[in-house]
Design a protein around this nucleic acid. Structure first.
Lengths: 160, 160
DNA sequence: CTATACTCGGACACAATGAATCCGAGTAAC
DNA sequence: GTTACTCGGATTCATTGTGTCCGAGTATAG
């Protein structure tokens, strides 16, 4: 099992978008991270579809966060980019084969699925406990406060 | 992101193997669950490679649990079948692009990766807290105690 | 002791999902 | 009114998961 690599890009983009209140084009975000701009566009579109960021078209358009960074959780981003469905899917094995349990006895989910889903819930809960604002603060502490200011200046400037 | 479907099969097989202390061939497990025997063999081989089950060759061979069901956790099975690697991989985006943070400043992992890995740890911890024995007990409670006895009888009998 | 039949084990194709790309529709600025 | 720049979805390629097959090895039966 491997998570979509686009999640990492999307998270970094959200952190960067924290620094600018004006629209930032996808091409600039791509150059900042040195990744494929065409593919990054896909992830940003997913974020826009989920309502996490708003797209502004036109000459000086781009993407802006719709909500405050404190109210955007990692779970929101993961669900938007990687899909909302559960990672573990139950195929109802217990209802197949010679010893199939009758359907009317399957009022509750399969114990196997229940345990797996409980673990997934723990994962989601941990993701929901962290916000983009938390990440931005940590990055700030690691890279020094001057880095973010420089990035902000570079983002707003028209330089390539 | 989607988990390998083989995990479900492997878990059910482990639960069934709880009922028999004699080797059970892969073909019988496949018929019991009504799944492809060739593909199920792959998963069982993975479990054997991880040391969770022991393979017995020869005419009346098959698979047996190596340890007590209480000492086999769901995490063991998942790691064996789905791979031990982390689902989130950090590509060190912070070290790329015009504002790349120098390598000597990267003593600690990227904050983004740290948060994602913390969530994964919560997931693993939840999986490690449940054992095959717990699952077997739950299945017993759901399907009634007579089901497991019947399965055990069918497993040991030579009937197809 | 020999032959046999049954078991696992790894090597081999096929399909689905993720990764990466491109060009067209729309909009704000000039 | 024109222009240039933006996003958005449809398309193509690579990787991983899914499914299958046949050969190596061993306990059993004669």
């Amino acid at each position: 099992m491997k998570m979509s690599g686009g999640v990492e890009w999307a998270l970094h983009c959200c952190v960067v978008l924290t620094a600018s209140h004006t629209p930032v084009p996808a091409a600039k975000l791509a150059e900042l991270h040195d990744v494929s701009s065409s593919y990054l566009a896909k992830q940003l579109q997913a974020l826009a579809r989920a309502g996490l960021i708003h797209s502004v078209q036109g000459k000086s358009g781009g993407y802006v966060l719709t909500r405050a960074p404190e109210s955007i959780t990692l779970l929101d981003v993961v669900r938007a980019v990687d899909g909302p469905g559960p990672t573990f899917v139950c195929t109802e094995i217990r209802q197949r084969g010679p010893f199939a349990t009758p359907a009317d006895a399957c009022t509750t989910p399969c114990p196997v699925a229940r345990a797996m889903w409980a673990a997934e819930d723990a994962w989601r809960q941990a993701l929901a406990a962290v916000t983009i604002a938390d990440l931005a603060r940590d990055v700030d502490a690691n890279s020094g406060p001057e880095a973010l200011v420089g990035i902000q200046a570079w983002l707003t400037s028209g330089t390539s």
